[in-house]
Design a binder for these strands. Sequence first.
DNA 1: TGTCCACTGGAAGGGAGGGCTT
DNA 2: AAGCCCTCCCTTCCAGTGGACA
Length: 406
Amino acid sequence: MSVDEIFEKLLSSESIFKNKRVLSHDYVPEILPHREREIQKLAYILATALKGGKPSNVFMYGKTGTGKTAVARYVLKKLSERGERLGLDLSYAYVNCRYRKTNYRVLVKICDEIGCVGLPETGLPTDAIFDKLIRYIDMKEKLVIIILDELDWLVKTSGDDVLYQLTRINNELDRSQVSLIGITNDLKFREYLDSRVLSSLSEESIVFSPYNAQQIYDILKQRAEMAFRDQVVEDSALRLAAAIAAQEHGDARRAIDLLRVAGEIVERNGDSKLLEKHILMAKDEVEKDLIEMTVSELPLQEQLILLSIVKAHNNRNGSKKVTTGIVKSIYEEICHELGYKPVTLRRINDIISDLEMLGIISAPVVSLGRYGRTKLIHMEVPVKSIMKVFEKEERFSDVLAENNKK
DNA sequence: TGTCCACTGGAAGGGAGGGCTT
DNA sequence: AAGCCCTCCCTTCCAGTGGACA
């Protein structure tokens, strides 16, 4: 089929989607099923703002896809609508720390969100940005609510300095006030925090438990009705998607991804109904895409280490364990062959930790007694998807060719 | 019971690539 | 242009450690 034909086909056939945007990550529906309790609690806390007071800081915990972000956005949206009607000056900033791992970038993003735009991505002292933020907020008499999503990433990579400053920002403000909402999916995260920051941040806390299959089904049903034309989606397909997502610790976002990708597959194939088989196809595609994208965006050294880990697993005869030391020696061989300068063991160790954070590998520290202490490295994703990325990279072709010979 | 392996992971710092202010 | 300060990736140095083995 030529490109023209593809376009033609897509345009001429009636889309199975009614409103595809409903299935995107940042869409917040009018009704959030099974989160009534959490919404109420957050609304109670934030309602203080409507009377001109400063709401308590809130800490929200819960695994990925349990609705934390959606609840926060939902309540904030309602709050600012209501605030507007009452003539209150209220604004909020949403920052996902996963994509802005430094203090500086988080601050710039906050400024950006509340309308203080045009700050450079790099260059200024962090303090200068902080001052700008304070001055901007204090310009008008207003309440600013800052949502810090995936806060654990920020604290793990650059400490809690900014968090500390933010929890104390009200001392610096004369006319305005700031409330913080911290969101994390790492339940052990509290341990990393300075106790002053923790107590200030968790004046209130809300815990989100994972959805079960029935609840995910309800969510999917709601979205499917909005997203697809009538009679397109089979109920069994929704059940299956819900079951798959429930297995993976009740992640509703994953379930919605499955539904969206399945819809795309249906459309691509020119089918008219979304069935169980499409969900299964979507499952593979979603996983593969995610892994391939992650791996292909890794910096050179991280790719080299990952390649070494994959090789170590391939070479492993029988029960030989893959440890940091083994990866290091294979990595050094590969660097030698390809003419790269190898990084030190200390750096390798950090890279292994990074790969673990990304979920590509698991690397718990174990003690082998007499044989020392090390990380025991396992693959957490199919090797095939990783290799697919490396095979496309010309710079690795030499090592891979030799690998195939063996 | 103590030793000692093979690391782990904190701390400090450097230098390349970049932007801001003066 | 100089002098700061930023991030990112990396190095050097080193104290700390769980548990198999002698």
